[in-house]
Nucleic acid binder design. Structure first.
Length: 409
DNA sequence: TCTGGGGTCCTAGGACCC
DNA sequence: TCTGGGGTCCTAGGACCC
């Protein structure tokens, strides 16, 4: 999906082996078919790809999450215009509940209409799978992609043909089966999706969990997770980043943490949430022999989304830091989330309302004039920092920044 | 020898997803 | 030199309740 967005923004990338890099331009997180054909692996470090002569033609882009987010929103909004029940599953996937038969035509027609509209309104190519359960729909969609068909509708297939597809599908490709389960299932002689569909559900549940049992039942055609199942409220909010350059002094780390805490608090406010518990951690590269990892939990009582309180809480991990050791990652995890203002404390005075208005005003100013014109305490007026993440190959933000809007003459 | 029978809430850790 | 950033769900176990 990231590569598809880059190709909408820059059509000259069509047909070229294209990859999108992770934050900090670290490794490949999205690959075009042409890039996959050249043997580039998911997660392969950019410094390795860059120096291989046979990969010289590969075009790399830094992640442009603002654009991907905007395209994702348009994608989901477009799907919703043609479907009565949809479930946003991920940035680039949606489940759509289709009536068995309707006056508007059969299921495949509806799916094709959605794909057509998504293509015309967003420019994104899609593949679709239709099945009696979510897990089977995912099997169908994978199959469509693998044979370069826009769509596969399993509900029109004869029963034994579905069985053949499942028998030809490695169990590791089934939605919900990762590497650990693949290993464990192999021990029971379960190697394909068909093996799993016919396995003893009780054994699966006792040996692993109800999650695996549901996956097996869904492969057998029994829906266990209805479309549109309303997800529970968000339970955690994380903001973590690798640093563009290692940070080894407490002084500098203090401003890193303040910046991250301010961002996390800003996202809390954007969701109308407040947090009761914060975990903050710093660590050095996991590829070092003497990796250091320190973390601390801080209770936020009463729960809050006030940037000043979150920023000062973020300092709690600093005493554990080894002065002089190169740290390259920091993160803030906020949990115990609740609707802002929903849990008035009986023991502590409510927060000063002017503090909330101040946070809202700072948000509004930053939205309108940029993050560099206003900031909190140690984050200061935000010029570029030594430790900012690297994004050296960023595409233009054609749909999220006015000043980068494409000019057509 | 022997020591009830339920519950809830919280946390840590493991598995998975994109 | 260089290796991402989020999330979810489930289970086990401990603390605590009546």
């Amino acid at each position: 999906m990231y590569v598809s967005v880059e190709r909408v923004l820059d059509p000259t990338l069509r047909g070229a082996p294209t990859i999108v890099l992770s934050n900090n331009d670290g490794c490949a997180v999205a690959r075009s078919d042409e890039a996959k054909a050249l043997g580039i692996a998911m997660g392969q470090p950019w410094f390795e790809i860059r120096e291989r002569p046979h990969l010289a033609a590969v075009v790399a882009r830094s992640s442009n999450y603002e654009e991907y987010g905007a395209f994702s929103s348009r994608f989901h909004e477009t799907v919703a215009t043609l479907a009565s029940s949809t479930e946003v599953y991920s940035v680039d996937e949606a489940f759509v509940g289709l009536p068995r038969r309707s006056s508007t035509g059969d299921q495949a027609e509806t799916a094709a209409a959605i794909q057509d509209r998504v293509g015309r309104w967003t420019g994104l190519p899609t593949s679709a799978g239709v099945g009696p359960t979510k897990t089977l729909a995912k099997v169908a969609q994978r199959h469509a992609k693998s044979i370069s068909a826009p769509m596969v509708d399993l509900t029109t297939w004869p029963h034994d043909q579905v069985g053949e597809l499942l028998a030809a599908t490695p169990v590791s490709e089934v939605w919900g089966i990762g590497s650990r389960l693949t290993q464990g299932l192999a021990g029971l002689g379960i190697h394909t999706a068909a093996d799993l569909a016919y396995a003893d559900a009780g054994v699966l549940r006792r040996r692993w969990s109800v999650v695996l049992e549901r996956t097996a039942r869904e492969l057998a055609g029994v829906a266990c997770t209805p479309v549109g199942f309303t997800p529970k409220d968000r339970q955690q909010l994380m903001y973590s980043r690798m640093l563009g350059q290692p940070v080894s002094s407490r002084d500098e780390m203090r401003s890193v943490l303040a910046q991250y805490a301010a961002t996390a608090a800003r996202r809390l406010r954007a969701h109308g949430l407040e947090a009761a518990l914060m975990q903050v951690w710093i660590s050095s590269s996991r590829f070092r022999d003497d990796v250091a990892h320190h973390s601390t939990s801080v209770a936020l009582d009463p729960p809050t989304n006030d940037p000043m309180r979150v920023i000062s809480a973020s300092r709690a991990v600093l005493p554990k830091m080894r002065e002089g050791h190169p740290y390259n990652r920091a993160g803030i995890l906020l949990t115990g989330l609740g609707r802002a203002g929903a849990q008035p404390s009986l023991l502590v005075d409510p927060e000063d309302p002017t503090r909330q208005r101040l946070a809202a005003a700072v948000d509004a100013i930053a939205d309108r004039h940029g993050r560099e014109v206003i900031g909190w305490g140690p984050t200061g007026l935000r010029g570029s920092q030594r430790w900012d993440m690297r994004r050296e190959r960023l595409s233009a933000s054609r749909t999220t920044r006015w000043e980068q809007l494409l000019t057509v003459r």
